[in-house]
Design a protein around this nucleic acid. Structure first.
Length: 424
RNA sequence: GUGGCUGUAGCUCAGUUGGCAGAGCCCCUGGUUGUGGUCCAGGUGGUCGUGGGUUCGAAUCCCAUCAGCCACCCCA
């Protein structure tokens, strides 16, 4: 077949058995997140491009080469959101929540867009489940956010995960460390592959992300950031780690974990899967105390994370979906009709049943055999048949597909008869 | 943006040294005047990803291009 239109690169169609898995996860996550005190937020998929240029930061890959940006008819610079934190902060300010008492806690399960080259567990339109907790500077909240992330994975039976934690300091101590690091790197420029060199000027911390062995070796010669923290950050970090211990969450301190977004400060963390797959990072997050002020709001501390839904599902997917199998939507009752007047009669009968169960009417005018076969494929438990005789006598043939028994049923008794079979 | 692998029926895939494009599953019809899950018989369905080239002749060889997957970069 010469199909005229195809999916855009890096996008997917979710349906059939796969969408069932999504529903299964979403139900559990809604439940877990409400138990941690989060309420759902849904924000527009399109935003002013400037929102992310400012928050995520130019100089990051997300902004420099992965944003879906375009100009609106009115000449505004817009984009499809590459991440959710900035949008939640925008919504928080725009809807006047700054004077809310306590901590404002939002969660989301929503599509994001990044113009990356797709690969396993990475798509251009992908989905994240995540939270933002706004209004508390407490390290205890950092720990709870990490715990929330783990609870999400636990709720869908994701196992074999590792929590990596780090602190990257605050405006007091981070700039000094970054300056020292830049000086050190510039003094050792010849040991750094060209691909990474330009990063030094923009954000030397991002050298820690490099998987290159030479770069990593070089960095072991420099002091880890945790040793350069100011006293306040040091205490904060210690409390976070202490809480994780109290909660029985196993973690690994990872001084090289700096994250790719500019707005993070103090706590950063990542949750990775120990699989053979390279896309092992399932979730990432951290504290962003400066972002709300930077967006024009009052100085407000906040912390959050987001997890990749496709990646999480990929990690769970040990059972491979057989493309030949289960392409059918299930129903309880299937209505076979032998001619067009019978279809009209059958349609009215469906109406009587839909308040109670799942019903599908066959309008294809195929052979009786073919219609019955489809009823079976739909896993229907009842087959109703309407032909000329039934139509004239105001009845339907009701066949119990488990037992094979078939009896004529008057229209008025149909609902009762169907109930009896399905409930019995 | 860079590299590797793969593109043949709706799906999963065979296709020999270049010689009539195949199988299984699915689907449709019949065996059973209007009855499924099992059988049996028959049938529909293909610009061999696309465009060029070599050749008497290309799914097969060459070039280009597109798409998918995987990896790098980076990230969820």
């Amino acid at each position: 077949m010469d199909i005229k239109f195809r999916r855009l690169k890096g996008t997917r169609d979710l349906m059939l058995e796969e969408i069932e898995r999504w529903h299964w996860c979403e139900e559990r996550w809604n439940e877990v997140l409400s138990r941690y005190g989060y309420g759902e937020i849904r924000t527009p998929v399109i935003e002013p491009a400037g929102l992310f240029l400012r928050s995520v930061g130019d100089g990051t890959d997300i902004v420099d080469k992965e944003m879906y940006s375009f100009e609106s008819r009115g000449g505004e610079q817009l984009c499809l959101r590459p991440e959710m934190t900035a949008s939640v902060v925008r919504a928080y300010l725009e809807n006047g929540l700054t004077r809310q008492p306590g901590t404002v806690k939002f969660y989301y399960m929503a599509p994001m867009f990044r113009h990356d080259r797709p690969q396993a567990g990475r798509y251009r339109q992908f989905h994240q489940v995540g939270v933002e907790a706004i209004g508390s500077a407490s390290p205890v909240l950092d720990a709870e956010v990490i715990q929330t992330a783990m609870a999400l994975f636990d709720a869908v039976d994701a196992r074999g995960l590792t929590v990596l934690v780090n602190s990257i300091g605050c405006p007091e101590c981070k700039p000094g460390y970054v300056a020292d690091l830049r000086e050190f790197l510039e003094a050792n420029m010849e040991r750094i592959p060209p691909a990474f060199q330009e990063r030094i000027a923009v954000n030397p911390l991002r050298l820690f992300d490099a998987k290159d062995d030479e770069v990593q070796n070089l960095l072991t010669e420099f002091k880890p950031i945790t040793e350069a923290l100011c006293p306040a950050c040091r205490t904060h970090h210690a409390v976070v780690l202490g809480c994780l211990g109290d909660l029985g969450i196993l973690f690994r301190e990872e001084p090289g974990l700096v994250r790719g977004l500019d707005y993070y400060g103090r706590t950063t963390f990542e949750i990775t899967a120990e699989t053979g797959r390279k896309q092992s990072s399932l979730a990432g997050g951290g504290r962003y105390d400066g972002l709300i002020g930077q967006c024009g709001g009052p100085d407000t501390p906040a912390v959050g994370f987001s997890a990749g839904i496709e990646r999480t599902l990929l990690h769970l997917a040990d059972e491979v979906i057989d493309p030949q199998r289960s392409r059918q939507t299930q129903v309880d009752v299937y209505v076979a009709c032998l001619d067009e007047p019978s279809q009209r009669f059958g349609l009215a009968a469906c109406d009587l049943l839909r308040g109670f169960c799942r019903v599908e009417i066959d309008t294809t005018l195929r052979s009786m055999k073919a219609q019955a076969k489809t009823a079976n494929l739909r896993r229907a438990r009842i087959l109703l048949t309407v032909g000329e005789t039934e139509r004239e006598t105001g009845t339907l043939q009701l066949k119990n597909l488990d037992t094979g028994e078939q009896i004529p049923v008057e229209r008025q008794r149909l609902l009762a008869a169907v109930r009896e079979v399905l409930e019995g």
